[in-house]
Design a protein around this nucleic acid. Structure first.
Length: 106
DNA sequence: GAATTGACGCGGC
DNA sequence: GGCCGCGCCAATT
């Protein structure tokens, strides 16, 4: 069975991330069947509209930080707020404890 | 069709 | 702990 075209795979993986958990771009890429293509994962989410049913806010970089997309806008603040609302704790630097909140895929 | 760009990850120094 | 270079794929110009 053929793989879905475009970033569909990435979106599917992100949708499987349970609330209160976070995943890294590399993790999403690997689960989508493209290990090493972390860039691809990031770009895929970047192209996602905020209206999407994909919880893109649960995806962060390997440092546990919220990646700044272009300019320091309200978006990163919103993402942090959404994560807190799910029970994910952020430290003073806006970092997530990956050892604690990293999604453990089946 | 080629070149450029874009929310990254990891190894090495 | 921070900086450098390479790899990765798709969409856009």
């Amino acid at each position: 069975m053929p793989i879905p075209s475009g970033y569909d795979d990435m979106y599917a993986v992100v949708r499987r991330i349970p609330g209160g958990r976070v995943a890294t771009y590399g993790q999403v890429a690997a689960l989508a069947g493209r290990p090493g293509a972390a860039r691809q994962a990031g770009y895929a989410l970047a192209a996602l509209p905020p209206e999407s049913d994909v919880p893109w806010h649960r995806v962060i970089n390997a440092r546990g930080e919220i990646s700044a997309r272009r300019t320091t806008g309200p978006f990163e603040t919103i993402q942090a707020d959404l994560l807190r609302a799910e029970g994910v704790l952020l430290d003073d630097r806006g970092r997530v404890d990956l050892e604690r909140f990293r999604w453990d895929p089946p």
